[in-house]
Nucleic acid binder design. Sequence first.
DNA 1: CTGAAAGCGCTTACAG
DNA 2: CTGAAAGCGCTTACAG
Lengths: 348, 348
Amino acid sequence: MPRTTIIDVARQAGVSIATVSRVLNGTAPVDAATAERVRLTVAELSYIPHAAARTLASRRTNTIGLVLPQIQGAFFQPLVRGVEEGARENGFNLLIHTTRNPNLEHLPSQRLAEHNTDGLLAFTNSLDDDELARLEAASFPLVLLYQTPPAGLKIPYVTIENQAGARDLVDHLIRVHGRRRIVYLKGPAEHEDSEWREKGYREALKTHGIPFDPRRVRTGGFYREDVVRVLQEIHSQGLDFDAVFAGDDDAAIGAYQFLRQSGVRIPQDVSVVGFDDQFFASTLIPPLTTVRAPTEQVGREAACMLVALLQGQPVDNQRVLPVEVILRESCGCPAIHNPTRSTNEECP
Amino acid sequence: MPRTTIIDVARQAGVSIATVSRVLNGTAPVDAATAERVRLTVAELSYIPHAAARTLASRRTNTIGLVLPQIQGAFFQPLVRGVEEGARENGFNLLIHTTRNPNLEHLPSQRLAEHNTDGLLAFTNSLDDDELARLEAASFPLVLLYQTPPAGLKIPYVTIENQAGARDLVDHLIRVHGRRRIVYLKGPAEHEDSEWREKGYREALKTHGIPFDPRRVRTGGFYREDVVRVLQEIHSQGLDFDAVFAGDDDAAIGAYQFLRQSGVRIPQDVSVVGFDDQFFASTLIPPLTTVRAPTEQVGREAACMLVALLQGQPVDNQRVLPVEVILRESCGCPAIHNPTRSTNEECP
DNA sequence: CTGAAAGCGCTTACAG
DNA sequence: CTGAAAGCGCTTACAG
């Protein structure tokens, strides 16, 4: 049986298809009574506009794209959820392209960008600089996630206060718990968040007059296995430490593993702290002290910015969301039996 | 700058757009040299066909739909992954509709079914019987997941050996560990898997001459909180038990919680077993004895069946995938230090 | 406020 | 093996 089209609605309502389209899209004033009649007919026939036809005729896909390395894991889930909700709340569909999925053909963002989406959200390092430049030159709407634009490009971005969060966290370790030999495990080389966090780490050391020791800053801080390996390395090099600032909460689990199997007590011998406040952070043993990052909100805000861009509204060039240190026990603070998470900078 | 279209390719290659289309889709024989020339031009211009135009012209969306209650959680993740991969491997896109997402308008599968997808994969209870009947009457391609079709409808489905798995698991509890007062926590009322598992449970009791006690079979077995509540209820009714067969592995965590806070030892006092072998099952303390279900494979096979249906190939009316009992320590079996999961029915 | 008509970028009989 | 042309179901100037 043939599909119900706009022609069927128009015929039955006694109007032209243009009028039906106008009622459905609210793109032009329509006589109230006529509009009502059209709406009734639409309901009666259970008419649903054909998305592809709409796209073709309007030259808009009503879809935003999200390019990121993966969607699994405690960090990406809330990010994707935020983007999803931001898109949906604005009536947009979401198309996700994961760059690290080996099953997916490698496609240079082109299909995603120019044919299937009206605009793109790009996570750090998911699109290379040339690609970004090309898209910007073509005035293709873009918003960056956790990344500032490459030099010379003016692309709005959303990120978090990495530096301040890391600084406050490390400052707490030094000031309250007397830690001075703090290992910082950073992410992959060009990972911008890690760079900002390192600045914060250095800032805190400086404040307390602790010299920066490059041997205590290592790459490999975003995967548990890498963390275990790197700590092993540090240990076998005879370099001692009294605290580990892991790349994120998941990586902190690697630190827990290494220390546990080495017979080192957390936090008595070594403090461990993470970043993000991922969902399981409070359930680790000991509960993890970390920096709460509004990951879901980053996703939502980015989606909203992109939508605003698509609608020709003015948007800020940048949006940096605040973070907050969450003190639990892995730094050395005493247990709180109140389940409310602390926002205090001193131990509660 | 205007988008590159099939016309640009045709012009530059010196052929008609029909020929370009044929080369791209392989829908008709094309002279080898001509085809090669077209392919070169396509590459040169970085031409990417416009998906919406294709859909409109071909009346095919090249997309399959998946309707299910949610995509989060240890059970649904592998299911969705399987469907995703099955779809992608066959060159299809995937559109997911979650029925339990309150942010999404409730849509009677119609939009998903008739306008945006070529066929639909429906998880148990996601589409009501009328809806299924309507779609089947319209010859809309369907495959059911973990559900047999309603009476009178002939819709292919993919599920697992629920009954045999449950039977073998319960049989193990009785035969090897001497359990005789086994609580079975089933899922929501119309949940078909639970019904089959109950049959398996009863079958095992019968084999060992243990009378069936309806008070030991309860609803509420798919959510941790419910499990805690139900066990509390059972306990406060003075009904004793020496084993809990939880609705799934996640629900088993609820049993762990209840027993632990009641000072009951697992497995010395009470055995606990689950279903699915979700990713964390081996990491629980004690490691969970369960039934390994090929959830990802169910998703993949269902996607493949639907694709076959769409391509007019013959498909089986049903596909029931085998499961396997995985013995760990929560039933009372001794710890294995070999990390290889056991497939043996006796304790290793 | 409304309609006739062009056109979005493809696929696919049809004819050769 | 190839091309001209109709048509997929809409949106949107254009004209009134």
